[in-house]
Amino acid sequence: TDTAEAYFEWSGGKALFGRDAFANYMLAGAHQLGEDMFDIKDTDVSISMDKDVMKKLWDNYYVPYVKGYFTSIGRYRSDDMKTGDLIVAIGSSSGGSYYAQEVTVGDDDPYPIETMVMPVPNFEGTDPVVTQQGAGMAVVKTDKEKEAAAAEFLKWFTDVDANSRFSMASSYLPVKKSSNDMESLEKIVEKNKIEWNDIVRDTIEVGFEECNTYELYTMTPFKGSDNCRHIVEDSLQNKAAADRETAKGLMETGKTLEEAVSGLVTEENFETWYNELSTQLREAVQS
């Protein structure tokens, strides 16, 4: 957050940073700050939203966003990096194969860039946490032969050799512990004469580092958890984007940045958002 502010001032008003999978920021961030948003006991679910924790999440996304230090323009932040609208982004390890190796600004010709992959940042003074999630596969009920064939395919696909080669092509982390090792992957690269994309390689290596040194956080599922996750995904992110447009409109009338955001980055505005989110989540859990 501090770096994005410094970059904004240095660059003459350009955003530095954006993030994908916004619910992960809220859920893993709250967990890292000592407060899981959903308290689950057997089948009972209650909302747990410590106001100080939620204010920390607000201060480190909403405030820099409405001031223009953060942004989100395309569908994914990797899209925003390809157009030069961002130079730093948080995404999933599986998004490594989509990150730009060149940038095209407007109608200009593309130019190459160097990309650095780093572990996900953390709140100062906390133990590191990263979200663990991903795609899954399932076998649908059908006749015995098709079910057996599907199971055989999954056994092959999750085997060390096949799954490692898939990981190197897709940037998904391997599914077996024995495969989560760079030395193991490099042997398969050498054996199969694989050309490995540098960004994918760096992404997987950093993913292994996080698995070994970070706490891995996963949201516990419960009845209605998918709806709750969508609410968490949209609430602060959509408000920040809408209020940024309000601030931009005020600046077009001649107000300075500080004047334009002065009515937005207030305790009252935070309280309004906090209460709305609390109400939405409680209704979602009770429905």
Results as ranks from 00 to 15, higher is better:
residue 102 E to N: 13
residue 137 M to P: 02
residue 64 P to C: 08
residue 149 A to P: 03
residue 3 T to M: 07
residue 88 V to S: 11
residue 62 Y to N: 07
residue 121 P to K: 10
residue 230 H to G: 11
residue 14 K to N: 09
residue 188 I to W: 03
residue 22 F to D: 00
residue 6 A to H: 08
residue 180 N to V: 02
residue 210 E to Q: 15
residue 19 R to L: 12
residue 48 S to R: 09
residue 63 V to W: 00
residue 71 T to E: 12
residue 33 L to T: 07
residue 66 V to M: 05
residue 270 F to Q: 03
residue 54 M to V: 06
residue 252 E to Y: 12
residue 251 M to A: 02
residue 236 L to C: 07
residue 110 P to Q: 04
residue 16 L to S: 00
residue 180 N to Q: 15
residue 197 N to H: 04
residue 190 E to H: 08
residue 260 A to R: 03
residue 52 D to A: 12
residue 229 R to A: 15
residue 190 E to Q: 15
residue 163 N to E: 09
residue 148 A to V: 07
residue 139 V to M: 06
residue 80 D to L: 12
residue 84 G to P: 07
residue 199 I to G: 09
residue 276 E to A: 04
residue 69 Y to P: 06
residue 46 S to V: 04
residue 87 I to R: 13
residue 14 K to G: 00
residue 57 L to P: 00
residue 211 C to D: 12
residue 9 E to K: 15
residue 223 K to L: 14
residue 184 S to H: 15
residue 57 L to R: 04
residue 239 K to M: 11
residue 132 Q to V: 14
residue 131 T to E: 15
residue 259 E to M: 06
residue 268 E to W: 04
residue 68 G to D: 04
residue 177 K to S: 11
residue 242 A to I: 10
residue 83 T to S: 13
residue 186 E to M: 13
residue 176 K to A: 13
residue 163 N to K: 12
residue 206 V to M: 13
residue 139 V to K: 05
residue 233 E to V: 05
residue 90 I to G: 09
residue 21 A to P: 00
residue 283 E to V: 06
residue 109 D to K: 11
residue 254 G to W: 04
residue 126 T to L: 06
residue 52 D to Y: 01
residue 81 M to C: 13
residue 244 R to G: 05
residue 220 T to F: 07
residue 220 T to W: 06
residue 284 A to R: 01
residue 26 M to R: 05
residue 53 V to W: 05
residue 262 S to P: 06
residue 115 T to N: 00
residue 243 D to V: 01
residue 89 A to E: 09
residue 115 T to M: 12
residue 78 S to T: 15
residue 148 A to C: 05
residue 253 T to Q: 14
residue 135 A to C: 14
residue 193 K to T: 12
residue 14 K to E: 10
residue 166 F to P: 10
residue 23 A to I: 02
residue 250 L to R: 14
residue 275 N to Q: 14
residue 203 T to M: 10
residue 17 F to K: 02
residue 61 Y to C: 01
residue 79 D to S: 04
residue 225 S to Y: 11
residue 86 L to A: 08
residue 21 A to K: 03
residue 117 V to K: 06
residue 279 T to K: 15
residue 131 T to G: 03
residue 248 K to D: 11
residue 42 D to L: 02
residue 48 S to Y: 01
residue 266 T to I: 06
residue 41 K to Q: 02
